Amino acid sequence: RQGFVPAAYVKKLDSGTGKELVLALYDYQEKSPREVTMKKGDILTLLNSTNKDWWKVEVN
């Protein structure tokens, strides 16, 4: 499932696989259909980080 999360809630990881991955630093509950819920410690695939406030991710 793809959607947006606050950029301040995730940290980029060095995956070494060519995929950009991020680590969820905090729990986040989606507040609109365009967002996704994540739990602290989740590893997500980063799809787009051009917006400084909201990053598009895919929940694996």
Rank of each mutant, 00 (worst) to 15 (best):
G18T: 11
T37P: 08
T17K: 12
Q29C: 12
L25M: 09
A7L: 02
S15N: 14
Y9S: 12
G18Q: 11
Q2K: 09
K40S: 07
S49D: 15
E58R: 08
E20M: 12
K11H: 09
L13W: 08
K56W: 15
S15Q: 12
W55F: 06
S15M: 14
L21E: 08
E30A: 15
G3H: 02
V59Q: 14
I43S: 03
K12L: 14
Y26K: 14
E35M: 05
K56C: 15
S15P: 10
L44I: 06
E30I: 06
A7G: 05
S49N: 10
T17D: 14
E20R: 14
K40L: 05
V36E: 01
K19E: 11
A7H: 03
R1G: 05
K12R: 13
Y26I: 10
S49Q: 10
S49G: 10
E58Y: 05
K52Q: 12
D53M: 14
F4H: 05
W54A: 02
A7C: 07
V57W: 00
T45Y: 12
Y28W: 10
G18H: 11
T17W: 12
D14F: 12
N60R: 12
N51L: 09
K11Q: 14
K12D: 04
R1P: 06
L46W: 01
T50G: 09
Y26E: 11
L47T: 04
Y26L: 10
V22L: 09
G16W: 10
V10E: 02
L21A: 06
L21T: 09
M38W: 01
L44S: 02
T45Q: 10
T50W: 08
G41Y: 05
D53N: 14
D14N: 13
N51A: 08
Y28F: 06
V10W: 01
N60W: 12
A24C: 12
V57R: 00
V22F: 07
D42R: 02
N51W: 07
G41D: 06
K31C: 10
Y9K: 09
K56R: 11
P33I: 09
F4K: 03
A24L: 02
Q29M: 12
G16Q: 14
G3C: 04
L25G: 02
E35N: 05
Y9N: 06
K11W: 07
P6S: 01
K31R: 15
F4A: 02
T45V: 15
K56I: 14
D53A: 11
V57Y: 00
E58A: 09
Y9P: 02
L13Q: 05
W55D: 01
I43F: 05
